[in-house]
Nucleic acid binder design. Structure first.
Length: 164
DNA sequence: CGTATTTGACCTGCGC
DNA sequence: GCGCAGGTCAAATACG
């Protein structure tokens, strides 16, 4: 990776600077709760000028696939400490139209895993916040029907200012 | 030199 | 009980 944006060679990057110059197509929500619409926003706060990503309204519940539920909370190995806090499982999935998955939302993400989903020929990337204490996780996967679309699933809530 | 990224291995949960 | 699917960690490597 020599470039930060390995996009198509013939695409005019005029609009593809390095921000969210894309259009939110669908907005998926999981769980009963959602981030506060006025505080501690996971991303796109004051860093992104193109903040036209307001509450869409496209509910897509079939994202979970067939029986595949998004779950990542499990006691690792020999854990027994009552770490079950009030931390709600803020699981939010965004379907964005972009050619790159490395969209800079103002936070630094460190890739910690790549897996291939059985329902898609596309790999799924797992990112985690680089900030200390920030246990926010991000999951990026390409759409099966529209490879031009990227499904980003955010898990958790940032607790530190964007150090970017 | 430090940080980010990579790939494979390994663990856990569920299903059959 | 084993296999599958999905998720996570860890060591090595690349790059700034």
């Amino acid at each position: 990776m020599t470039d930060k944006n390995p996009i198509s060679p013939n695409s005019p990057d005029s609009d593809f600077t390095n921000q969210w110059s894309l259009e939110l197509s669908e907005y998926l929500k999981f769980d009963d709760d959602i981030w506060p619409d006025d505080d501690t926003e996971p991303f796109v706060s004051e860093h992104v000028p193109n903040r036209d990503i307001q509450q869409a309204n496209e509910f897509v519940g079939d994202f979970g696939g067939s029986g595949s539920q998004i779950d990542g909370s499990s006691s690792r190995g020999v854990s027994n400490e009552g770490e079950k806090k009030e931390i709600r499982d803020h699981k939010v999935a965004f379907k964005t139209k972009s050619e790159v998955e490395i969209l800079d939302d103002g936070f630094r993400w460190r890739k910690y895993g790549k897996k291939m989903v059985k329902n898609s020929p596309n790999p799924r990337n797992y990112y985690r916040c680089s900030a200390d204490g920030c246990q926010v996780k991000k999951r990026v996967e390409r759409d099966v029907d529209d490879p031009s679309y990227v499904i980003t699933t955010y898990e958790g809530t940032h607790t530190h200012p964007s150090s970017h």
